[in-house]
Nucleic acid binder design. Structure first.
Lengths: 180, 180
DNA sequence: GAAGAATGTATGGAATGCCAAACATATTGT
DNA sequence: ACAATATGTTTGGCATTCCATACATTCTTC
């Protein structure tokens, strides 16, 4: 099929085009160029590539729009971006600006499987009263019972359980895999 | 700071070299090539680049070692890899193989700030019983208090949201994915 | 210790993705 | 309407990173 896995760069273009269209009803080379901080000519080049892949409707000097396929692909990227952003903000307490920047960089390197878990986990942390952790700058995380810096007594009592649930300690050997 | 920010590719080479040296006391072109699934000639090329940057000691046909700077850089990559891997395994309950693969891809796209938080958060989840969430395949996350058939008091307070997490409707089966 | 196997290097070429500068088209202001 | 300006395109060039092929060196084995 045509599902030929887009490069990070092309994903960025798609995402930007989608956002521009939702915000301003139209995407222009100039705006894409500004957002992505690349040269006009880079944008033209990318648009041609995306047009070849049938993801954007592109004609010289005309406004740019997404094809149906392009919209699907863009939404997928944005879903990853949003999920990561939410996770960073809600779970790791990263401020919005940084979370957005970081999501930008990480969104291209995340599998569906892990994305799902991140989404679920963020939802869980948000909704489960037991799961609430608080980030204290310069200190780390604590929950209401564990306030202060180190783990409390209560926290220690359950270590065995934790270990049982999550399995024994982890081997730290790394293995490499071919990239994209 | 001669820190000229390495490419993802060069980081992979460094990491691999480091691991090979710790495992086998020596890094060879052949082994690097195998681990990274690239051609011998790509390895030679990368080694030259790394040598120019004073990160590896490279002489044709000789064993490869890291310089002091190279070792620092490699450890930094590995720290990111390990932290991500641990987080994925311990917090998101991803199986080891996948966690390792994912860490590989994400390790190049993560800022120091966020890395620190991830490390702290994983530590927190590990040590605080209140922060422990459990991933149930096909169901999602739950905490100990939310377990079992009936919702606990704590959970009832949040019933609407909890239904979203625990309810049978949102998540159906584990989905397979490929891509990338 | 030399033939053959294994390992490593050099070269040339391909794909991606960026930029600068020259050129083309469109839009705007008077 | 049309000159000035803004926007978009083309071209050529550079850097990265990979591969295939041919060549070079080192290691192994008889």
């Amino acid at each position: 099929m045509s599902r030929a896995a887009l490069s990070a760069s092309l994903e960025d273009y798609l995402e930007t085009i989608y956002n521009l269209i939702s915000e301003k009803r139209a995407a222009r080379v100039k705006d894409i160029s500004q957002r992505l901080k690349v040269n006009y000519s880079s944008v033209t080049g990318a648009l041609k590539t995306l047009a070849e892949k049938n993801l954007v409707n592109y004609a010289p000097y005309a406004l740019i729009s997404l094809t149906a396929d392009g919209e699907v692909a863009a939404r997928d990227v944005i879903r990853r971006h949003t999920a990561l952003r939410d996770f960073l903000i809600r779970v790791l307490a990263v401020d919005e600006k940084r979370a957005d920047e970081a999501a930008c960089e990480m969104e291209h390197a995340i599998s569906k499987d892990i994305l799902e878990r991140i989404i679920r986990f963020a939802e869980f942390v948000e909704s489960c009263p037991q799961g609430g952790a608080n980030w204290t700058d310069g200190v780390g995380y604590s929950c209401d019972q564990c306030r202060g810096s180190g783990p409390s007594v209560a926290c220690r009592t359950n270590r065995g359980l934790r270990a049982k649930i999550h399995g024994p300690n982890i081997i730290r050997k790394t293995r490499r895999e071919k990239k994209r």
